[in-house]
Design a protein around this nucleic acid. Structure first.
Lengths: 329, 329
DNA sequence: CTGAAAGCGCTTACAG
DNA sequence: CTGAAAGCGCTTACAG
């Protein structure tokens, strides 16, 4: 029941715990510990079923071999996949991941960030929500490398990995235009998030380039609370303005909208575009022009940047990595 | 940059670190520390931006305020939602969650379990995979309460929270029969998992009760590797045996199958049933009779059982909680 | 080649 | 009402 410690092993063998620690950490070389002792220690450790106590090690070394992942909602398929890819990448470097969902609330975000700090995670990957800039800087200030993913905050010196959101929306909208759409709605859920803002800009740029008028009535932003009802309301509004197509800024918005439209049998001849291409679309039977995000790559790159900083505290380069999404018809 | 410790606060105030610790832990009452000192300590802690070091606390108390969640794959929508609900429930009790995906591999499962032990999580929630019984017992043996979720292993004394899988499959199959189906296929992916096994039994029972013959050719189990191709192959086989309907044992099997059938335009007059009702179905437009799992409740109950055991080491009751799924047409 | 010792930041009995 | 001290399980300079 009680865990066996390095000291237990040392006592059993009648040697010092220093030797045991050294061997168990593979630092027995450099002519330090004799081969036979090394072997004996290793064997005894195995026999006694020794397992290092990370809390003790972490206290001493300051490293926990854990990273924190702070997203908007792990159950959102985008973040769920991202979490999985980050898990995989982290595992390769012998890190485990602890997660938290902010629900786009700055208060929750801050609470979770503080817990990560208290638990001495070695680094954190965050999908920043509006207004959390200072929280991110606090994480960094307490010595924990941080990288942003999916979204970025431009005025803080922290690296990020995002897709080219402007371009993604631009391509989707342009495609719809080429298919003959003239009144294209845009449905988002929080215009203040960097990624959404860029998507909005890309959408507008496509319209302008095609010489189409932009119309504020065709741009909707629903809030996170009462999501379902709000979507319904904004859809009603869009339809009353006679849109012939809608661009969804995120999978969540898209899924809820499609589901609402389908229920009320109002899909008709509407065309759809979307940033992010969740599995749901693939099976929906509804043709949707979407930009699929390279989620695995997002996760890998974020972890890479983080790992670099964890292992080299002097490395201070701040970069924003833009990945290209793929247009899927 | 450097974190401030209890000692720093004590020095600044010219008092002992014991007093600081007591106050910060809310144990300053019992006439222990004077009101003014208490106030002064609290204020100084805030001023200096003190944050407890969990590694140190954990080393001393043996508690990490962290639980481990070990599922098959966090990116699977079922587990992603489960993770989220467990996160919420854990948060209410001031626990954070660390996760890992086993990919149904016993080796990975064991590796992750060991990491959880090393990191001294206070408890773990697992979706057991085949052959991991002994690993679960090891977790328990190292003093960490464990509860199983979604699946159970009957011959080990560990509590679990599952849905009534037998009943769920029985209801789905019966419903198909009532709708006139006579050749009902069953598509699963690992017949050795407790939940899948039960679902298979429920399916068989429904056929028997209706006086329909059971036919091994109509029961398929694909393996985790080369998932897509295998599904394709087994679907071909099922169709060649002239099924008029298929029951999918899990969302993953169902989604892949539907997507494959849809691509090759072979949905035709087939009817479908499924255990688990992911959002994908709702939007697919394909009518599917499914049993929706009470995922939130699964998570809540699992955490509840775990919490009980964490807080009362003497509590040894082993129970299996069966929740009822909801038939959705 | 090996051991004794200090210290990471906490908590908690113990002594006053 | 408060302080001095031990100890959780490690790692790592230091001394030999």
């Amino acid at each position: 029941m009680a865990r066996v410690s390095i000291k237990n092993i040392a006592e059993k063998l009648g040697i010092s715990s220093a030797s045991v620690s050294l061997v168990l950490n593979g630092k027995g070389k450099n002519g330090r510990i004799s081969e036979e002792l090394t072997a004996k220690i290793l064997q005894t450790a195995k026999e006694m079923n020794y397992r290092p106590n990370m809390a003790a090690r972490s206290l001493k070394t300051g490293l926990s071999k854990t990273i924190g992942l702070l997203v908007a909602d792990v159950s959102n398929p985008f973040f769920a996949k991202l979490a999985r890819h980050i898990e995989n990448a982290a595992d390769k470097k012998n890190y485990q991941v602890m997660f938290g969902s902010s629900d786009e609330s700055c208060v929750k975000f801050s609470k979770l960030a503080n817990l990560f700090i208290e638990k001495s995670v070695d680094g954190v990957i965050v999908a920043p929500t509006t207004g959390c800039d200072s929280v991110i800087m606090q994480i960094e200030a307490s010595g924990i490398p941080t990288v942003m993913v999916d979204r970025t905050v431009e005025d803080i010196p922290v690296s990020s990995v995002v897709i080219n959101n402007y371009d993604a929306a631009y391509r989707v909208a342009t495609h719809l235009i080429n298919e003959g759409c003239r009144r294209i709605g845009f449905m988002a859920y929080n215009m203040e998030l960097s990624n959404i803002k860029k998507r909005h800009e890309g959408y507008l740029a496509a319209l302008k380039e095609a010489g189409l008028p932009t119309d504020d009535h065709l741009v909707k932003s629903v809030c996170f609370e009462n999501f379902e009802e709000n979507i319904q309301k904004e859809l009603d509004s869009l339809l009353s303005y006679n849109v012939d197509s809608i661009v969804f800024a995120t999978n969540r918005v898209g899924l809820q909208s499609l589901s609402t439209l389908q229920k009320s049998n109002r899909i008709g001849n509407l065309k759809f575009g979307s940033i992010d291409n969740p599995d749901e679309y693939k099976i929906s039977g509804i043709p949707i022009i979407s930009v699929e995000q390279p989620i695995e790559e997002l996760g890998n790159r974020a972890l890479e940047l983080l790992y670099r900083r964890i292992n080299d505290p002097k490395y201070k380069v701040v970069e924003t990595v833009y990945l290209q999404g793929t247009l899927v018809l």
